[in-house]
Design a protein around this nucleic acid. Structure first.
Lengths: 139, 139
DNA sequence: GTGTTTGCAAAGTGTTTGCAATTTA
DNA sequence: TAAATTGCAAACACTTTGCAAACAC
């Protein structure tokens, strides 16, 4: 239980599994991202969060890490706003509500929504994914 | 038929109707945008096009014009790519195929696709629009 | 030790803005 | 002429990159 023994929590294992060295920064960010279930972050919001927690990680590293996690399949990028990139810790099949005025994303489970009638793509193209964004506003 | 008489084509009328002064730039851009049916442009592609046609319009004016046209309901903004803003001359109900590698959008008529099971939004929010993006790739 | 990762600051990209000059009505 | 619009260049927000120092194994 001494301090000399490095703790290897879930985060570290997850990173190893993804082929990423569990550096201090990556472990901290993974800790924040994956401690609760479904999260939606931007590079800046995550940087603020990690900084607020008293941990020093540069914004550039946050960007790099988010992309590495995305490539590793730990995150999914969500495109709903031209100005910002969102990353979703839920990598499964699902859709989103998006409240633009507040930059807020809310998950909609994949089974909930059914998209019917998607036509066959033009020759030479195949479907990668069907994204549904339900844009909402304050009433 | 003299050159001194300004021609007032569809574009001009359309602009007047939208409460926009038919300036040379706006008339040129509207001419390009609305001459054929459904078009998808970015500020840059439209600027290249108008410039290529030998007409001088600044990029800033293209941006401003695209936004003015959008506010006037002549265009619709399509958000599919974090890096670029697309504008669609089809303002009716419809969805899109998006080929990211080439920045290409293809319309899918509104009646074609049916989205079922959209849950009620959280209290205080109401649905603005449901966007479906069918992301495709070259086979 | 050796290759990887980080942080900084600089560069990049797409977009917006301030303001004088121009154009429209 | 009065008000709207344009073009330029500078400013912007977000993101990526080059490279030396720090770190993981």
């Amino acid at each position: 239980m001494g301090k000399t023994l490095r703790e290897k929590g879930k985060g570290t294992v997850k990173l190893r599994h993804a082929g990423l060295r569990p550096t201090r920064q990556r472990v901290e960010l993974a800790g924040l991202l994956f401690k609760s279930c479904d999260r939606h972050v931007t590079a800046e919001s995550l940087h603020d969060e990690v900084t607020g927690a008293g941990v020093k990680v540069s914004l550039a590293t946050v960007y790099n890490t988010l992309h590495q996690f995305t490539e590793a399949g730990l995150l999914r990028q969500v495109i709903v706003d031209a100005a910002r990139s969102y990353f979703d810790t839920n990598t499964g099949d699902h859709q989103h509500f998006f409240l633009e005025s507040e930059g807020m994303l809310i998950d909609i489970p994949g089974e909930t929504i059914a998209v019917a009638g998607v036509p066959a793509p033009p020759p030479g193209l195949s479907i990668d994914r069907v994204d549904v964004v339900v844009r909402v506003r304050r009433t």
